[in-house]
Nucleic acid binder design. Structure first.
Lengths: 238, 238
DNA sequence: AAAGATTTAAACCACATGGTTAATAAGTGA
DNA sequence: TCACTTATTAACCATGTGGTTTAAATCTTT
C-alpha cells in the first residue's frame, strides 16, 4: 500500500508567507507528512509569481495577510497566467469579505492559520484531487457575504422608485437605441418614424428620468437595470 | 432527551412541489421524523407566495424544476418579502448554473431529489440552525461556476487590448467627467482650462477609443472597466 | 361617448457637439 | 540638442442636440 503511494508522483507545493518562522513551520508539517514536495518557499508575494513561472508547482499555499505586497493580488496574477496552478489561501482571519475575495479570484481553498496541521494536509489533498476546500464555518461566512452582496444589488436595481417603469414601450425602444450611441437620425431610420418624433420621445424620456441630456439618460438606464436585463440572462453574475 | 426536544418549538415547514406524489412523500418523511411541522403544501409556485404571507413558516422547501411558474422566481419573490423565511431548493438536477442561481437568489440550502431522506432531514436541521446546507459535491459545482463567471468577467475587462490604456492622464480626467454627463463648458470649469482645450482632448479620446461621439465613449469606458475601478472597491462584486 | 394616454409630426431657436487645421509651451527621453 | 509626447488655445464651420409649443391620429379606459 505504502509502495503504491510512493510510485505516484508527489504533488509539488510552493509556499508563500512573509513570516519566516511560519514558513519553516509549514514546510516541516508538509515534509513530516511526506505526501507532498515543497519545491520552493518565499516571504515575498512579488517573488511568488516568478517562482510559479519557474517551478510550475501543482499547489501554491499563499498567505494573504502580508503587509507589503497583497497576497490577493498575487493570486490574481498567478491565475491570470492560466497554468492550472491551484492556489490555497492561508489567512489569520475568517473575515467574510476576505474569504469571498480570495475565492472570487480563483483560490481553490482557504485555510486558517489557527487550524490543526492535519487540516492543512487534508486541504492540500482535496485541492490536489481537484476539489474545492472550504471548511463549513468558512463556507457559511462566504455564502452570507455572497448572498448579501446580491441582495443589495437587486435591491438597488429593482427599486420601486425606478423611474424607468414610467416609460412607455415606444420610449423604451428609443432609449434602447440611445444607449447604443445611435443618432436621432439613425433612431428615426430604425423605427421608421420622423426625426422630430424621435426628439419628442427623447424629451419625454428626459423629463421622466429627470435628466438633461442623453449621456445622463444612458447612465441612468445602465445603473438601473435597463440594459442589464439581457446581460443578466447571459452571465447570471455581475 | 426526547422530552427536551418536544419542549422546543418545532420548526414550521412549507412544501412546494408540482408533483403531488412527491409532495406527499416528502410530507411523510418529515412527519415520520417528527422534528418539524408541515404547515402547508402546494403544487403551485404562485400560491407559495401567499402561503408564505399567511403562515410565516421557518422553512420553505421549494421545488425549482417546475414547468409552469419558475421556482427560482418564487424564491426571489419570497426573499423580497424579507420575512426571514429560509428557503431550501429542491431539484432533480445537480446543474452548476441552477445551483448558482438558487444560491444567488438567497436559498439557504440545495437538496437533490435523489438524495436519501435522512439527508433532507439533516439539511432542514442545518438550515433551521442558521447554517447553509450545500452537499460537498454541489458545493464544488457551485464554486466552479462562481469562479468561471468571474474569470470570464475580468478577462473581458482587463483585456490587454483595452484602448483605455492609451489615454493620457489628462484625457482620463476629461473622460471621467464626460461619463458623468457634464458639458464641455462644465469640464473646462472643473479642470481650469478653456473649452477648446476640452474639445481637443475629447477629439483625441474619440480617436483613441475609435468612437464618434460622447455616448459611445462613455459606453466604451463603462464596458471596459473605467468607471468600475471605484465600484469594484466598494462592493467587491459585480 | 368622453377623458386620458400614446404616438406621431412640424416649426422655431439657442446652444452643444464634432471635425479640422494650426500653433505655442512644457516636459521626456534618446 | 533633437525628436516626441503632452497639454494648451484659437478660429471656423457643419451638424447634432435639447427646449418649447402646437396639434392630429390612435388607442385605452371609464
Amino acid at each position: 500500500m505504502r509502495r503504491v503511494v510512493e510510485f505516484k508522483k508527489k504533488a509539488r507545493v510552493l509556499l508563500i508567507d512573509d513570516n519566516y518562522d511560519h514558513l519553516a513551520g509549514i514546510r516541516e508539517i508538509i515534509n513530516l507528512d511526506g505526501r507532498f514536495d515543497v519545491v520552493a518557499t518565499s516571504t515575498s508575494a512579488n517573488i511568488a509569481i516568478s517562482l510559479v513561472k519557474k517551478h510550475h508547482p501543482d499547489i501554491v499555499l499563499m498567505d494573504i495577510n502580508m503587509p507589503e505586497k497583497d497576497g490577493l493580488q498575487a493570486i490574481q496574477e498567478i491565475e491570470k497566467l492560466d497554468l492550472g496552478v491551484r492556489i490555497v489561501a492561508l489567512s489569520g482571519y475568517d473575515d467574510a469579505d476576505l474569504i469571498f475575495r480570495a475565492m472570487k479570484l480563483g483560490a481553490k481553498g482557504y485555510v486558517l492559520k489557527t487550524m490543526a496541521s492535519a487540516q492543512l494536509i487534508y486541504a492540500i489533498e482535496e485541492v490536489v484531487a481537484g476539489k474545492i476546500y472550504l471548511p463549513s464555518a468558512l463556507s457559511s461566512r462566504f455564502f452570507e457575504h455572497f448572498q448579501r452582496s446580491f441582495k443589495e444589488e437587486t435591491a438597488v436595481i429593482s427599486d420601486e422608485e425606478n423611474l424607468l417603469t414610467y416609460l412607455t414601450q415606444r420610449e423604451e425602444e428609443v432609449l434602447d437605441l440611445l444607449t447604443q450611441g445611435i443618432t436621432y437620425k439613425g433612431v428615426a431610420g430604425k423605427l421608421f418614424i420622423s426625426e422630430t418624433t424621435v426628439k419628442t420621445h427623447v424629451n419625454n424620456i428626459f423629463q421622466k428620468l429627470q435628466v438633461n441630456d442623453r449621456t445622463q439618460a444612458v447612465l441612468y438606464a445602465i445603473n438601473n437595470g435597463f440594459t442589464n436585463k439581457r446581460k443578466m440572462h447571459l452571465t447570471s453574475v455581475r
